[in-house]
Amino acid sequence: MTRERLINAALLASLLGVPLLAWQMDEPFVITLATKVAILALAGVGLNIALGLGGLVSLGHAAFFGIGGYAMGILAAHAQNYEPLFTWPFLFEGSNQMPLIWLVAVVASALAALVIGALSLRTSGVYFIMITLAFGQMLYYFAISWSAYGGEDGLSIWVRNEMPGLNTLDPIQFFAIAFAVLAMALWFSARLARSPFGLALSASRQTAERVETVGLTPFKLRLVAFVISGAITGLAGALFADLNRFVSPTMLSWHTSGEIMIFVILGGVGRLYAPLLGAAVYILLEHLLGGISEYWQIFLGLLLLIMVLFAKGGLIGLIAGREVAHD
């Protein structure tokens, strides 16, 4: 077992252990923090497929996060107000069932990623960064001016959505859902990285010409990776909206894109568990520094600068050494 795999196991164990301990000690706030970490890490796992595996620096993943959030908000708002979402070709009254909401969130964000990706991947480098950023902002401004669903004020849901067989209002049970989804996404992205598709994608990140020479199309590989990446981040968005029972254009703003990227980078680009460590550190910093100073983001900014300038490979890189493990 390499050192990186040990770290990964320890990370997953503490994400599971801390809330269980908090549950025993009756500290629901800690459980909620851990749930937040799990969900944000899920968003990072999505981005990491595009960023770490595909080398696609997307600064617009808030778009998918927000689409997932609005999928939940819109379905649940119609269900709670008893206003049908549409009546043709069949009557659909919205839904407060998580599985259906997730399905809609994943499909909607995958479709958005397909359109945005197909346009943005025509370019590369800085153009790609700016274009994904711009598309993200387009949806942000659209959500602000879309008064039917709350516009700038966002959309509140009174009761958390339901999951068959579980009581989602109980913090530890909702945490279990988020943790299970995160674990599945981590397993999936590990499988993906080792699959023929993942290897071809990695290869087209490193030398696109060679991939082309053997008859594969880097554009298609990247587009598929971008769609999968967007879909996972969209699922995280639906869960995040459910955690807060609230969705607003803030979820779509480019600060959110920046934060999701920070999770990945803090942990270490291309490392499978980077988003988990990054999100955990970020949430802890927010919680601890936020208690000391209202201006905690100055410290976050300084820390980030130091990380970027002096610690390439992120936190996992610092602990586990520079070499990325090929397991």
């Binding site: 920046g258 990227m261 920070i262 983001q297 900014g301 980030l304």
Partner: peptide, 12 residues
């Protein structure tokens, strides 16, 4: 790296 470092500058 440039994106992140300049994003950090924005926060500061």
């Amino acid at each position: 790296d440039q994106v992140l470092a300049t994003f950090a500058l924005i926060l500061i």
